[in-house]
Amino acid sequence: MSDNAELLKVTDLSLDYYTSQGITHALNGVDLSLKRSQILGIVGESGSGKSTLAYALTRLVPRNAVYRSGEVLFDGMSMLDLSEKELRGIRGKRISMVFQDPTTSLNPLFKVKDQIGRVLELHQGMSRAEARRAASGFLSAVELPDPDQVLDSYPFQLSGGMQQRAMIAMALSTRPDLIIADEPTSAVDATIQVQILELLSRLRREHEFSMLFITHSLDVVSAVCDSIMVMYAGNVVETGTVSEIFSSPKHPYTQALFSSIPRPRKSADEEKTLATIPGSPPDPRSLPSGCKFHPRCPYAFERCRTEDPAFRFVEPGHGVACHLY
């Protein structure tokens, strides 16, 4: 397989949640493509379906979720058709995950060595002593000082930043092809966040894994990702390289997201008021007709109310779902 081959390809993925209050359309025709050793940032506000997408790829979805349509190809395998047993060989091994809150994703009752070691024993068939040595190596790779002491610690004895590093070490330990990181730096402080983002960039260069980086922050995306996918109400509204999207965002929602990020004022006279998007994201149980963003869009016209815009490429590698283009 060549180096720039597609590792992950998602076509027209739609997923519904059946709840007592009706059917929630969490994902609507999502397309995604990720090459080897690339980092794709998935940006969206809460409820946009970005986390659902991450879990849907490995079928880690709750019982009330139903795949309406679509295909997920991971390294040529159709993830939606594999048996549970086959999936277990992929999840946690070839695809590993880093979650938002390390305090809830590490088991508080086990020492770090038992948690990382178990992964290695299970997936790599190592003995206990080998697993400890390997785990210590991965902890130094994530720049944890004194890895042996960390191995013998319980999670509560580590700070939030150290726990998140341990989670990343655990995700790395099976040498995965793909790491799915769901808001990995949202629970830590700014100075620690920068350290973790730079760590992830470095590890990606050294270990050559691909990554799906889910976040609500455009700033974070610019620090680590190669390309960006912007989601709104379960739809992909724009994709492109980081430099494309940062220099010329096309979709009105992406533009509005940029303008609503507060930036420090440069003088005493500068206005404090920010440009805002009126209203709030739609209820996923009753999405608006046509373009899902039209009720909040300043450029909306008749066609936006009736017709769902198709996703088209305005430039090579820069796609947008909007009737304006």
Binding site: E45, A190, L257, S260, K272, T276, I277, P278, S280
Partner: peptide, 29 residues
């Protein structure tokens, strides 16, 4: 979320001007 944050920040600044309030604003951001 950022879009809601922007609305709230604008609202709080409008209220501050309108009612002549003094704010002590604590944030890590």
């Amino acid at each position: 979320d950022v879009s809601i944050q922007a609305q709230l920040l604008n609202l709080m600044m409008d209220l501050q001007r309108e009612y002549g309030l003094t704010y002590f604003y604590i944030s890590h951001d």
